[in-house]
Amino acid sequence: MINNRLILTLLISDGLLVNSKGFILNPVCNISTMLTYLNFDLFDEIVILDVTRVNRNIDGLSRWISQISSKCFIPICGGGGVTSIHDCETLSNSGIDKVVINSAAFTNRKLIKEVSQTFGSQFVVSSIDAVFKDGKYYICTNDGKFPREITVVEWVKELEDMGSGEIYLRSIKQDGSALGYDINLIKLVSESTSLPIIAAGGFGHFRHLENGIIAGAQAVSIGNLFHFMGEGLSGAKQYLLNDNVKPTTTIWPFAMPEKIL
C-alpha cells in the first residue's frame, strides 16, 4: 500500500532554524534547541534547506545535517546551494538520503541527469518555486528572486526527462501565508507528470493537508515551526487518518485540536 507522507521542512540560515513568510526569513531557534524538543517520529520524512542569503556553502549545510542526522531516524532530504556531484557526495556523507536541487538544475541542464545516474533517481528531489503571472505559472530561481520565462509545466516535464525522482513544489505567494497550499498549482502539475509531488508553502490548518492530497500531491509539507508549537503538530496526521485521504500507517495517539493558529 502506498502511503501519503507528512513532511517537515526545516529552513536553516547561518546555523539557525528560521521560518519563511513570502520568502522573508525570521529566526526561530538554534539547531541544538530544536533537537532537544522536536520528535522526528511524528513525521515520515524531513526536508532540510539551507536558505542562508550570504556566503551559503555546502560545508556549513553538511555540518548542520550531520548534527541533525545523529538524532533523526527518518529519511532526510537536504539541499540549498547544491551545484555539483561533489556537493551531493558531501551531503550524502553527512547523512542525507535524497538531495534537493533547485536553481542549479536551471543553470546547468546536465546536473540532474548526472546526479540521478550516479545516485539513482530516488535520490533526486527537484524543487520548484512557482509564481503566477498572466494566467500561467512560471518558475523562479535563486530563492524566488529571478522569474524565468519557462512555465512550471514545461519545466516539470524537463525535470522528469532528466531523471528527477520527485518534485518539491512551492508557491511563492502562498509561502508562509497559512492560507493553504496553491491547489490549482498542485492540480496542474499532478496532471502533467507521473512524479510524486511534495506540496509545500501555505500550511496553516489540518484540512490544508487533505486538500493538498486530494489535489494530487503524494506528500504534504509543514514548514513554519510555529505551526507545530503547542498542540498543533500532534493532530496533523490524525487528521489525515480520520478523513478519506489514503492513510499512512503511523498511529497518532493524540487528540486533534480544533484550530492551531
Binding site: 502506498i2 502511503n3 507522507r5 539513482g120 530516488q122 525522482g165 507521473s194
Partner: peptide, 11 residues
C-alpha cells in the same frame, strides 16, 4: 501506478 524503485513507508 506502482513505481520502481519503490521508496516509502510500508507496514
Amino acid at each position: 501506478n506502482l513505481k520502481i524503485p519503490y521508496y516509502g513507508w510500508s507496514s
